[in-house]
Design a protein around this nucleic acid. Structure first.
Length: 462
RNA sequence: GGCGGGUUGGCGGAGAGGUUACGCAGCGGAUUGCAAAUCCGUGAAGAUCGGUUCGAUUCCGAUACCCGCCUCCA
């Protein structure tokens, strides 16, 4: 059995990973709020934890349960639906909200599929678990960890001494530096909402505290409990969620089930950056996965760029990296074409097992390519979600280049005798201009589609 | 202000207390009608200042700069 080591954010140390139940390794990752297209930053945790999922499945023989939720209760979704209704869209607010979340989930699936991310075993929607959330909130009130006030239910952070442990903060420090306005009904400024009232313009569910909707944090606590139980192995998400979201999840879940561990290992991916800054709408450096795909950047290329940097470090997205990744993948794809995958290389598995050292694993892929082990390269790449048949269409020419190769070879034969290479060079230049890589040797002529290949520009070359 | 992360060769980016990361680019060579591709070889590093050590880029401390969180942004 391969020893997996993971950096545990709870202990701030790299630890040997030992599953609670090797027959069912359980992972929960915070998924998207489905109000709009996923931006490139949203894709990083997807690729990171997809790679973890693939590794765990490889090591534990597929006995892994991976849950990633959809947050479909959110004020931004409500706002979109309300705006559509006010613009004259037909249907109830609930129906318009459902329409919005449905289309967004569809986009999300399409975009993440393009990155080679496997679908998780469960993708729960928060709206389907409101009953479980209400039950959990009732339990917290009964245990003295939460209180109702003015239609809200709040978590009492002072009732949980470990509050702040994950993010390394003390409640007193947080209050000192807090910039939030404190609602008058809070017992402590850091108390957070478990349930809040909804007016008639907002979706709501009946509860012991009146018609309302759940707070964000309780959603993940309830869904992980329902699908994975009170103790599970790994909880993942972006580092920006560490506080307050994950801190609050821990408080809720550990207070509701003090006998259990909740998540044993916490993994956080660092932020994706563009030009050295976090991607955000306010900075104007914002673009979606779909934008890149539409620009012709293949999902496989995006994935390889992501895997080039360790998940725990900030990663800068640049066009230069995309170009290099594309060139690398073209080379590898040419090498593994038509080859049957064997088994993933030991060195690749070792690298991945070392806290998901994907950059190290890529170095091993280069080593396999240099050795000419195409079968091992293919299998190893596929373990990392690369080099699959399904993702490879972008690297294909889409047209048969053989006739062009034959034509060029014929011109060359003539030129060799006539000592006039002008016609050969002219055709070669045209092919290169169309993005074709031209390889001539004693053995003959070989043509391959290269970066920026454009079949339309082959017109008239035969 | 509080908390956390980072600073590696021209660029990207890892591991390791002492031995080549790796990729791209560069340089030299083989090969080629010329190229491309490929192959062989090769130079180049660890923010600054201290400390521990026989030895640190790797451990510890300080300084500088960068980034993130503290706002339901992954």
């Amino acid at each position: 059995m391969v020893t997996i080591r993971l950096h545990n954010g709870k202990t701030r140390a790299k630890e040997v990973f030992t599953p609670i139940d090797p027959e069912n390794v359980r992972v929960y990752v915070c998924g998207p709020t489905v109000y709009d297209r996923a931006h490139l930053g949203n894709a990083r945790p997807v690729v990171v934890f997809d790679t973890l999922y693939r590794l765990l499945r490889h090591v534990y023989g597929g006995k892994v349960t991976y849950v990633r939720n959809f947050t479909d209760v959110d004020d931004k979704i409500n706002a979109t639906a309300l705006a559509r209704q006010q613009a004259g869209a037909a249907g109830s607010l609930e129906a318009l909200i459902a329409e919005r979340t449905e289309e967004t989930i569809g986009w999300y699936h399409a975009d993440m599929d393009a990155l080679g991310a496997l679908r998780p075993d469960h993708e729960p929607r928060a709206t389907a678990y409101v009953g479980a959330m209400i039950g959990m909130i009732e339990g917290l009130i009964a245990k003295g960890h939460a209180y109702a006030a003015e239609g809200h239910v709040l978590f009492d952070v002072r009732s949980y001494p470990d509050y702040g442990h994950l993010s390394g903060r003390s409640v007193d420090d947080m209050i000192a530096g807090a910039r939030v306005e404190v609602a008058p009904y809070k017992r402590d400024p850091m108390d957070f909402v478990l349930w809040k009232p909804s007016d008639e313009n907002l979706p709501g569910w009946d509860s012991p505290w009146g018609r309302g909707r759940p707070g964000w944090h309780i959603e993940c606590s309830a869904m992980s409990l329902e699908l994975l139980g009170p103790s599970f192995d790994i909880h993942g998400g972006g580092i920006d969620l560490q506080f307050p979201h994950h801190e609050n999840e821990i408080a809720q879940s550990c207070c509701a089930h003090p006998e259990a561990d909740f998540a044993r290992v916490w993994m956080h991916n660092e932020m994706l950056q563009v030009e050295g800054k976090k991607m955000s709408k306010s900075l104007g450096n914002f673009f979606t996965v779909r934008d890149l795909l539409d620009q012709g950047v293949p999902g496989e290329v995006i994935r390889l760029v992501f895997l080039g940097t360790h998940y725990g470090r900030p990663m800068d997205w640049t066009a230069e990296k995309a170009a290099q990744a594309e060139a690398t993948l073209r080379k590898w794809r040419a090498l593994v074409k038509g080859v049957e995958a064997s088994v993933p290389a030991e060195a690749v598995i070792e690298a991945l097992a070392d806290d998901l050292n994907t950059a190290g694993a890529i170095a091993e892929l280069h080593a396999l390519a240099a050795k000419g082990d195409a079968a091992g390269l293919k299998a190893s790449g596929q373990l990392m979600g690369l080099l699959s048949e399904a993702m490879g269409d972008w690297a294909e020419a889409g047209v048969d280049l053989a006739p062009y190769a034959a034509r060029l070879a014929a011109l060359r034969e003539v030129a060799m005798v006539a000592k006039d290479f002008a016609p050969v060079d002219a055709m070669k230049a045209a092919l290169v201009a169309a993005g074709v890589e031209v390889r001539m040797s004693k053995a003959g002529v070989e043509l391959l589609p290269g970066p920026g290949f454009d079949a339309a520009r082959l017109e008239g070359l035969l």
